[in-house]
Amino acid sequence: MIEVKNVTKAYGKKQHEFIALDDVSLAIDKGRSVAVIGKSGSGKSTLMHIMSGLDHPKSGSVLIDGQNIFELKQKQIDTFRAEKIGFIFQSFFLEGNETVADNVSLPLEIAHVPRSQRKERIQKALESVELSDKAKNKARNLSGGQRQRLVIARAIVNNPSIIFADEPTGNLDSQTGAKIEDLLFGLNKERGVTLVIVTHDDELAAKCDVQIRIKDGTIQSIDYAKELGDTSNKAKEGEPA
């Protein structure tokens, strides 16, 4: 369960202050797939950064499983991210000169997973994105779709409970994009991983349980398009789902 309570984030100082998020509140149940939809500059990426503890809000709190992560020490936030969260960044951030396996190994090394367990977990993660045969290849020799799959493997290797994905299909052709979508929603359904997708692609958003539309730092609407049980299609801004 992710609860965002009255989060405000501002950049710059005094006269030049720019409000990126203005008193945003929302709640995401465990195991849901959620799309955060908005144009660039709407504050959706900032929201993702704050929900994952990467960025600090000016005010408000983020509770994950009831724990306000901004009350934790930096060390504990780091550990929390290393163990509970998987990231899929829009611009991959792969180490082109390292092998596929070494790229996937990075989160495990950071989380202090013993060497003996790493190999097996890397193998499993690569299997689930069908990249096992490329384990020894350099990341830079992969195609766009393979890179995206590699990024997913890196995100899931530490068995996170939440995956944040920033435009996971943005750079891909529709066929490869569909494959990636299947993979992500498969993780969501089969492993119960909470999936938060930041996108401006309505088609992808429609496949999620919840759509949160965001504009100019405020939540416009929260739709439960594929709501489980709940038939009311709309919720008021700021109301926990």
């Binding site: 060390k75 780091d78 929390f80 991210r81 290393a82 969260i85 990075l106 989160p107």
Partner: peptide, 9 residues
Amino acid sequence: GLMKALGMR
């Protein structure tokens, strides 16, 4: 940035 996002101290 990536390493920090992944929780590296």
